[in-house]
């Protein structure tokens, strides 16, 4: 009996591993491509590049792995370098701004009563659910009025005031027990002190969850820079990648992987927080 059970379990695992592998395959594909030499890529891609007949070929792993395309990316393509840093600066600025503005706001919503709180919070929830197409024109009008178009701030500022991280952190701050806050107050702690020394440490998981979700979102930014940044030297990496011609496939692979690595490490380090964040966005208010 026991043995049959374990065979069945193995079958299920095998059956589930297939789609799981498919889900992760793009990483392997990009890594393999970025380690292929120029000649190997050229041979694989020859039907497309030289207009011949036949089809692209591909192998799971590179036949002659080399780091040459990586070196080329780092040393010979200043434009890729600039755009990579644009992505880094934009993402970090947005996340820093969200921390500065959003964390206190989430605390205020979670632990205080003040006039208009309910209405404000409902508006926050509605705004957080609106896709960019709804907010695009309004953001454009403000940014245009402030003469911020074609400046990195045109992407950063609206994102800083995104209401989604406030909602996520709010959910975690609500879990801070009132009894602890009361006892801190009795010990003479003021509002700011309670927030910094009681709220933040206990609700830190929420802050990290919001940061992980935020990073994965803003590292991928496409719509906003496309609309608000005309000057291509300000573009993030995500807009640069699809413009690389397949004749420079080696560079495209190395650049794709350079984009993937930071996101992947944030994912590895923050997976628990990512899951908590996903759940916090769904549980009823």
């Amino acid at each position: 009996m026991k043995k049959r059970f374990s065979i069945r379990k193995l079958l299920v695992i095998g059956f589930l591993t297939l789609p799981a592998f498919a889900a992760c395959y793009p990483i392997l594909f990009l890594l393999a491509g970025s380690l292929m030499g120029r000649d190997e890529l050229k041979a694989n891609l020859s039907p497309v590049l030289s207009g011949g007949t036949g089809f692209i070929r591909w192998s799971l792993l590179p036949a002659y792995p080399t780091l040459r395309e990586w070196v080329r990316l780092l040393l010979d393509t200043p434009e890729a370098f600039v755009m990579f840093w644009n992505s880094v600066k934009m993402t970090l600025a947005i996340l820093a701004g969200q921390l500065l503005v959003g964390v206190p706001a989430a605390w205020g919503f979670a632990k205080y009563r003040f006039p208009g709180k309910k209405i404000f919070f409902t508006v926050y929830i509605i705004l957080m659910m609106m896709p960019f197409q709804v907010l695009m024109l309004s953001e454009y009008l403000v940014l245009d009025g402030m003469r911020l178009l074609d400046h990195p701030l045109s992407v950063i500022l609206p994102a800083v005031f995104s209401t989604f991280p406030v909602f996520i952190m709010y959910r975690f701050f609500c879990g801070v027990p009132d009894a602890i806050i009361e006892s801190a107050k009795i010990d003479g702690a003021g509002h700011l002190k309670v927030f910094l020394h009681v709220g933040l440490p206990i609700g830190s998981a929420g802050v990290i969850s919001a940061l992980v979700l935020g990073f994965l979102e803003y590292w991928n930014l496409i719509e906003q820079p496309l609309a608000f940044l005309k000057d291509k030297s300000l573009w993030p990496m995500s807009l640069f990648l699809p413009n690389i011609d397949l004749s420079r496939a080696g560079l495209a692979f190395a650049a794709s992987v350079s984009m993937l690595i930071p996101a992947f490490f944030v994912f590895l380090g923050g997976q628990d927080y990512l899951e908590q964040g996903i759940m916090a966005g769904a549980v009823k208010e």
Partner: peptide
């Protein structure tokens, strides 16, 4: 296995597009 299914969330759209181009070209 659940982690494996979450991995695509971490793969930037701009990166994975390269795979698409390879897969879905007329000569892909």
């Amino acid at each position: 296995l659940k982690s494996a299914f979450l991995v695509p969330m971490a793969i930037p759209a701009a990166s994975v597009v390269l795979l698409w181009r390879f897969l879905f070209q007329p000569q892909g």
